[in-house]
Amino acid sequence: MALRLHCPHCGVRPVDEWVYGEVPDPPDHLTGADERDVDRGFMMSNTEGAKQERWFHAGGCGRWQAIERDTTI
């Protein structure tokens, strides 16, 4: 909760102003159409460490921002 994220338009803001957005990342080795579709819809890498994310700054500019974050800090 105490996470603070930097909005390029509004500045640094606490996480309660933001909404997290998952970025589907099916691995390349999944080649079947159905297999990729199921992975996009449900599966997640759930990365431990630095990760590209999308956050919607609902409490400010109301726009999506691409933010890199380390999930272990």
Partner: peptide, 18 residues
């Protein structure tokens, strides 16, 4: 749960408040 995906075991003060 906290809204952000995370492996951090840190606490927050907002949690105590909310």
């Amino acid at each position: 749960i906290d809204s952000q995906p995370s492996y951090s075991y840190r606490s927050s003060y907002e949690f105590l408040s909310h």
